[in-house]
């Protein structure tokens, strides 16, 4: 039995030993985290484990015992979006949307680490999350806008 915190809730799961966190999440119908390459190359499945953005396809579910997992479902809700989600919508940083959950989680890690990031910081944080639609310009703008809004809210 593996016990860990998923978006703040303690969960206990008994999954097959070779299941990844990605597989576990999607089998539990937490479909926000997207299934991409299963090789850690595309970043569509990025989640935070103990605050670090990682590809969930490369994280064994059994290795999560005692850890804290955050997925896009824990970020915001319809009507109460996280500033990052709002910024992605406002800027138009979404086309097909498949990479968006991974981008949001990678960006969340960045903004916790560097609340006032430069464009270079954002581009570095998003390395590993591939987007074939937007060319990254709009997502980068969105993260910078979210950072600005979050800073303004703080002050």
């Amino acid at each position: 039995m593996t016990e860990f915190h998923l978006n703040g809730q303690l969960v206990r799961v008994d999954s097959p030993v070779n299941w990844s966190l990605l597989r576990l999440l999607r089998e539990q119908r937490w479909w926000g985290t997207k299934h991409g390459c299963e090789g850690g190359e595309c970043g569509a499945c990025a989640v935070l484990v103990d605050g670090r953005a990682v590809p969930s396809c490369l994280t064994l579910a059994h290795s999560l015992h005692g850890k804290r997992v955050e997925t896009v479902e824990g970020l915001g809700k319809p009507g109460d979006l996280h500033p990052l989600q709002e910024a992605f919508v406002d800027v138009g940083a979404i086309q097909c949307g498949y990479c968006t959950p991974g981008m949001l989680m990678a960006s969340l890690e960045l903004l916790r680490r560097i609340p006032d990031p430069t464009e270079a910081d954002v581009r570095d944080a998003l390395t590993g999350t591939l987007c074939r639609c937007t060319g990254y310009v709009k997502p980068v703008e969105a993260v910078l806008l979210a950072a600005q809004k979050m800073q303004e809210e703080l002050s």
Binding site: G40, E41, R52, V54, P55, L58, A106, A125, T127, G128
Partner: peptide
């Protein structure tokens, strides 16, 4: 590894 996600792991 150019991917920060993979460098995190």
């Amino acid at each position: 590894n150019p991917s920060r996600l993979k460098r995190n792991v």
